[in-house]
Design a binder for these strands. Structure first.
Length: 220
DNA sequence: GCGACAG
DNA sequence: ATCTTGTCGC
């Protein structure tokens, strides 16, 4: 698939802030997605002591979650890891991998936050806006916000609140296991996001999409 | 000013 | 993220 270039990639957080503020205006947190036939998962690894960025994308059929296609892309690493600016480090290479796909995914599950971000523009939002594809943020740990303790049952969740605003949810995908943090990326509401994350999760804490992408991104 | 801080 | 030994449970 072809993706339009929207902006140059900055090399510092200071230069990245204006870009986040501008693109954050384009984020849509209501449901603007059609029938989901293909769900994608993306993940990024940093081999060669971090000097190389390796992005992996897997496309699964939905709801049966069978692997249909995968792609991988590499770039020299140019942006450091700075909390709040993860997308500037990972998205350029992820877009390269997406462009190699034959199948255009109907939904993408990202490894990281969506709007559960200081400026409401986490990596899932950035990828969603640039690719113009519905995205959901699924993070393993918290960047901002807090939530009440949740019940132990699989599928239970509590609102993730930041500055008195609900920005996502802490979701228990497996009984008795630490929750994942789900938030809207682009063109997906929170409730719909929670539903898709549950439907993509089978026997592990993380969605199958993320697990397969992770295997491809970190393995060799 | 002092901590917290996705991957 | 990455590095990296042992340990716990099915």
């Amino acid at each position: 698939m072809k993706i339009n270039q929207r902006h140059d990639w900055p090399l510092t957080a200071e230069e990245a802030i204006p870009i986040q503020q501008q693109l954050a205006k384009e984020v849509i947190t209501s449901d603007e997605l059609g029938t989901v036939q293909y769900v994608a998962g993306v993940d990024v690894g940093f081999p060669e002591s971090g000097s190389i960025t390796r992005a992996a994308v897997v496309v699964l059929s939905f709801p049966d979650l069978q692997l249909k296609e995968q792609a991988i892309a590499y770039r020299p690493t140019t942006f450091p890891y700075v909390p709040g600016f993860l997308s500037f480090r990972e998205v350029p290479t992820v877009l390269d991998a997406l462009e190699k796909l034959t199948i255009i995914p109907d939904l993408i599950l990202c490894d990281g936050q969506g709007i559960a971000h200081p400026r409401r523009f986490g990596i899932a939002c950035h990828l969603g806006v640039l690719a113009d594809i519905p995205t959901i943020g699924v993070a393993k740990s918290l960047l901002v916000g807090k939530h009440e303790e949740l019940p132990l049952e699989r599928g239970t969740w509590k609102p993730l609140v930041h500055r008195r605003e609900t920005i996502g949810a802490a979701l228990r995908t497996r009984m008795g296991v630490k929750p994942v943090y789900v938030s809207s990326g682009h063109r997906v509401s929170l409730l719909t996001a929670i539903d898709y994350v549950m439907r993509c999760t089978t026997k592990y804490k993380l969605p199958e999409t993320t697990r397969l992408a992770d295997k491809l991104a970190s393995n060799r």
